[in-house]
């Protein structure tokens, strides 16, 4: 999938080439969320979205996926109907903890507020698989389930590994545990989506879990797990997440002198990259923190 951004917010002229898993790296206010919005088939562009709000300037987001063009042109409107299904996740841990009014839900909401419903909607066998997988990631638990409460609500509960009589309420388990469950749920969503964008995956997660989840999302993107290949886009400014990314998966957002943002790929084919990567003990995060790749404040 390829996305061309022209005069759209901070992107004056930039092209984003997506790999199955793409990791967007940049400082705060460098346009990471803008890229996620550009991926959304429902995107429309208003005057406030035009580069430096210049009047008479035309802002365009043009996507190409499987030969189908879609996007939006601020002058002429829709460029074409997108043929892909899109999901954006910016999990809000306070909402993820909330009990849900019981109803069927096949897709996780952007904030993760309906995680209990999505879990409970899965077939029992799949719930078991998901629970088993979750407990491998967070081995202080031995099971997870949805438990009915009052007034038609239900919430997730987590079983203590060492005392099966103890079930923890959502408010009693760590942020990272709930976020991990939400991320693991993505592979079982039915129907599946074609493009998933996850913002700041690493927030609240131990670096070990970050590595495991990046690996899972790569397999999800390649179609090795889940319901078929898709594009998974992660946004981050975490050096520890970068340790688990492949150079060809990373896109760096670099602010230019005129205030616009450029999207750079890692020059992994160059002698400079190879030498530098070795000097830094093959630590992608450390190379990025040096500032020699761009994508830093």
């Amino acid at each position: 999938m390829k996305v061309v951004l022209s005069n759209y917010r901070c992107f004056r002229q930039a092209t984003l080439n997506l790999t199955p898993l793409t990791v967007i790296v940049g400082p705060n206010a460098s346009g990471k969320s803008t890229i996620v919005s550009a991926l959304d088939p429902a995107l429309s562009i208003g005057e406030r979205d035009v580069w430096q709000r210049r009047s008479g300037t035309n802002a365009v987001v043009r996507r190409e996926r499987d030969g189908v063009v879609s996007g939006f042109d601020s002058a002429s409107g829709w460029l074409g109907m997108a043929s892909f299904r899109f999901q954006r996740l910016q999990l809000d841990i306070g909402k993820v903890r909330q009990p849900n009014q019981v109803q069927s839900a096949s897709l996780l909401d952007v904030s993760g507020v309906n995680l209990t419903n999505v879990f409970a909607t899965l077939p029992r066998k799949v719930q078991g698989q998901l629970s088993e997988e979750f407990c491998r990631f967070v081995p202080v638990f031995s099971d997870v389930n949805a438990r009915p409460g009052d007034t038609g609500q239900h919430r997730l509960v987590f079983q203590d590994r060492w005392n099966p009589d103890v079930w923890y309420e959502p408010g009693e388990v760590s942020d990272g545990s709930l976020l991990t469950l939400a991320f693991l749920t993505l592979q079982y969503q039915q129907p599946s989506v074609d493009v998933i964008a996850l913002e700041e995956l690493e927030r609240g997660l131990h670096p070990y879990l970050v590595g495991e989840l990046v690996s899972l999302l790569r397999r999800l993107a390649r179609g090795e797990v889940g319901r078929g290949p898709m594009n998974v886009v992660l946004t981050t400014h975490s050096a520890s997440l970068l340790e688990f990314a492949l150079p060809e998966e990373v896109r760096l957002l670099c602010r230019q002198d005129d205030g616009s943002v450029d999207i750079r790929e890692v020059p992994s084919g160059t002698a400079e990259w190879r030498q530098t990567f070795e000097e830094y003990g093959r630590s992608f995060g450390a190379v990025w923190l040096s500032g020699g790749l761009g994508g830093v404040p």
Binding site: V266, T270, E272, T276, E279, V287, S290, G292, L293, G294
Partner: peptide
């Protein structure tokens, strides 16, 4: 010292 003498991106070197 060696690390800070290596620029990963040739365009930034």
């Amino acid at each position: 010292l060696r690390r800070v003498l290596h620029w990963a991106d040739p365009s930034m070197r």
